[in-house]
Computed example of a mutant assay.
Amino acid sequence: MDIEIREFITYLHNRKRTSHNTEVSYQRDLKKMAVYFADRGIYDIRDVGELELEGYLSYMERGQFASSTISRNVASIRALFQYLYQENRIGRDPSLELKPPKVEKRMPEILTVDEVDRLLKQPDLNTPKGIRDSAMLELLYATGMRVSELLRLNLEDLNLRLGYVVCHDEDKERVIPIGNVCKTAMEKYLKEARGKFVKENETESLFTNCSGKSMSRQGFWKVLKGYAEEAGIQHDITPHTLRHSFAAHMLQNGADVKSVQEMLGHSDISTTQVYLNFGVAKMRDVYMKAHPRH
Rank of each mutant, 00 (worst) to 15 (best):
residue 4 E to S: 05
residue 5 I to M: 09
residue 6 R to E: 12
residue 6 R to C: 00
residue 8 F to Y: 12
residue 9 I to W: 11
residue 13 H to P: 01
residue 14 N to L: 14
residue 15 R to L: 14
residue 17 R to N: 15
residue 18 T to F: 14
residue 19 S to W: 10
residue 21 N to Y: 14
residue 22 T to S: 09
residue 24 V to G: 03
residue 25 S to M: 06
residue 27 Q to I: 00
residue 30 L to P: 05
residue 30 L to A: 12
residue 31 K to S: 13
residue 33 M to D: 09
residue 34 A to D: 15
residue 37 F to E: 10
residue 40 R to I: 06
residue 42 I to T: 14
residue 44 D to H: 04
residue 47 D to L: 07
residue 48 V to D: 02
residue 50 E to S: 03
residue 51 L to E: 11
residue 52 E to A: 06
residue 56 Y to F: 15
residue 57 L to S: 07
residue 58 S to Q: 09
residue 62 R to Y: 14
residue 63 G to F: 13
residue 65 F to P: 03
residue 65 F to M: 13
residue 65 F to I: 03
residue 67 S to W: 04
residue 68 S to C: 11
residue 70 I to P: 14
residue 70 I to M: 15
residue 73 N to R: 15
residue 76 S to T: 04
residue 78 R to I: 03
residue 79 A to C: 06
residue 80 L to D: 08
residue 82 Q to C: 06
residue 89 R to E: 13
residue 91 G to W: 12
residue 96 L to D: 08
residue 96 L to I: 05
residue 98 L to P: 02
residue 104 E to N: 08
residue 111 L to A: 02
residue 111 L to N: 03
residue 113 V to G: 05
residue 116 V to A: 06
residue 117 D to E: 12
residue 121 K to D: 15
residue 124 D to Q: 02
residue 124 D to S: 07
residue 125 L to W: 00
residue 125 L to E: 01
residue 128 P to N: 09
residue 131 I to S: 02
residue 131 I to D: 00
residue 132 R to K: 06
residue 132 R to Q: 06
residue 137 L to K: 09
residue 137 L to C: 12
residue 138 E to Y: 03
residue 138 E to M: 00
residue 141 Y to A: 07
residue 143 T to H: 05
residue 145 M to N: 01
residue 149 E to S: 00
residue 151 L to Y: 04
residue 152 R to A: 11
residue 161 R to Q: 15
residue 163 G to F: 10
residue 167 C to F: 06
residue 170 E to C: 11
residue 171 D to G: 13
residue 175 V to W: 06
residue 176 I to S: 07
residue 179 G to W: 11
residue 181 V to N: 06
residue 186 M to L: 15
residue 187 E to M: 02
residue 189 Y to A: 04
residue 192 E to R: 09
residue 193 A to S: 13
residue 196 K to E: 10
residue 196 K to L: 01
residue 198 V to Y: 08
residue 198 V to K: 09
residue 201 N to D: 14
residue 201 N to S: 07
residue 202 E to D: 04
residue 202 E to S: 13
residue 203 T to I: 02
residue 207 F to R: 01
residue 213 K to M: 11
residue 215 M to H: 07
residue 216 S to M: 10
residue 218 Q to G: 13
residue 219 G to V: 08
residue 221 W to I: 00
residue 226 G to M: 11
residue 228 A to I: 12
residue 230 E to N: 10
residue 231 A to N: 14
residue 235 H to F: 04
residue 237 I to N: 07
residue 238 T to G: 08
residue 241 T to F: 03
residue 242 L to T: 03
residue 242 L to S: 04
residue 245 S to C: 07
residue 247 A to S: 05
residue 247 A to G: 01
residue 248 A to S: 15
residue 254 G to E: 01
residue 257 V to R: 04
residue 262 E to M: 15
residue 264 L to I: 05
residue 267 S to D: 14
residue 268 D to C: 12
residue 268 D to P: 10
residue 272 T to N: 06
residue 275 Y to L: 00
residue 275 Y to W: 01
residue 277 N to S: 00
residue 282 K to S: 06
residue 284 R to L: 13
residue 287 Y to E: 04
residue 289 K to C: 12
residue 291 H to L: 04
